[in-house]
Design a protein around this nucleic acid. Structure first.
Lengths: 134, 134, 134, 134
DNA sequence: GTGGTCTAGACCACC
DNA sequence: GTGGTCTAGACCACG
């Protein structure tokens, strides 16, 4: 699990962590019963206070996504079946919508928008492939 | 100028207004010298306290994006040349990248991603057209 | 309402505030509908951070003792009938018990204990009377 | 030595142990050179982690109240003369004062207060006697 | 080492 | 002015 924070977005850091864990659990890239990173190391990696991560984990536990045992760690809950495809696409659609709106504000047309989308997707794949090879 | 607020994003509302005005001015969809909506009607339209809009306008003025004339209103400053196309695409690419990453986490492939992007773009256009007609 | 904090007791400050408000409401010395001190001034008076008082008030609201309206203030809830005498004595008995235990540890006998109790009660009354006169 | 913990008071458990040992030593109910209970049995009796008791003993040793001999146990230090009576009463007066204040908040009068004090003192003695007999 | 709690400072939205 | 939220630092209990 790799976390990516955006400190400038204004979105609370702890919610960014919550979302990323949920997506990872939803997509199946973290399996049920698997441990999450411990609070302290993760906080250090993210350059964030311990409590910020703790708050994210507390929120995830209250949502039933993970289970946490004091002194042991936090683990993905069992009852989280990977999301159905329709739900996954719904989540993705929200992200795409914000890009569409931005395109409109910047007066970028459909053809150009789609070309850019393809370019960025390919660029992302390339980067991942190179990372996997190295 | 159409504003779209997201109360759940955690991003301060007044900054959302600031950003949208800046993008609109940068993209040329608001021309220099054009008036911005008055604070009270805009606050009402956005379902937000007047102080929040006032704060956004104050921030914009301090950044030199707009100029406020007491008793007249607020106007886009002259020295904001519309951004070059390359810069606009760069801004848009950032938004698309986050959608691409989300697609990867949700294990959505390229074909599906691009199809969804087209769908959402069309849906957005439809909605605008209907709004303009009514 | 006068608050008295003990920073050395180890008892969380916010809980001390909670208890004192509850006792005041229970004893009827704060009437239903009456406003509590605002968070900031109270925090300043107690030499404590705003959030500490806010946490106490939040706890009181979750317990139904007070009701708080953002931008207006906090008010004693209506349904808090003054405690029955038996309940009041029960609360007081707890405090006395800790003094009794202390007496035992310090090997102070019953006669001496009761004499001291009377002395301190009288001393307290005297102090209050003098304060009222001045 | 009988320990009594209050898990709800918010006061750190290890400090409660420290205080009670100090009071016992100060009042003379534990004599100099007398051994304290070993960490493990005491921790078990108090339903507390061994580290917590160990922390209390370490604190007591650093304060010079007890001395620990590896492999032998912990013993009350010699230089702790039992407190003079006046000092003991002073300590007790503090506890009684908090009960008096509570009585005032709960609008309990002097006669009732003193009667309750006597009741609780007797009840405590009874409980001790029964415990000693069993 | 693990997670949990209390206190604090800064910023936000609203009146 | 009002209360609400996010981030942080220090301390605690437990393994």
């Amino acid at each position: 699990m790799r976390f990516k924070l955006n400190f400038k977005s204004g979105k609370p850091v702890y919610l960014q962590v919550v979302d990323q864990v949920k997506v990872a659990a939803a997509s199946g890239s973290i399996q049920a019963g698997e441990p999450l990173p411990s609070i302290r190391p993760l906080a250090e990696e993210l350059r964030v206070n311990r409590n910020t991560v703790a708050k994210a984990y507390a929120e995830l536990e209250s949502q039933g996504v993970i289970e946490t045992v004091a002194g042991k760690g936090s683990f993905v809950s069992a009852n989280n079946s990977p999301l159905k495809k329709a739900v996954r696409l719904e989540l993705l659609a929200q992200e795409i919508d914000t890009a569409v709106i931005q395109a409109h504000h910047l007066q970028v047309g459909k053809a150009e928008f789609l070309r850019l989308a393809e370019d960025r997707f390919d660029a992302f794949q390339d980067k991942r492939d190179r990372a996997a090879t190295s």
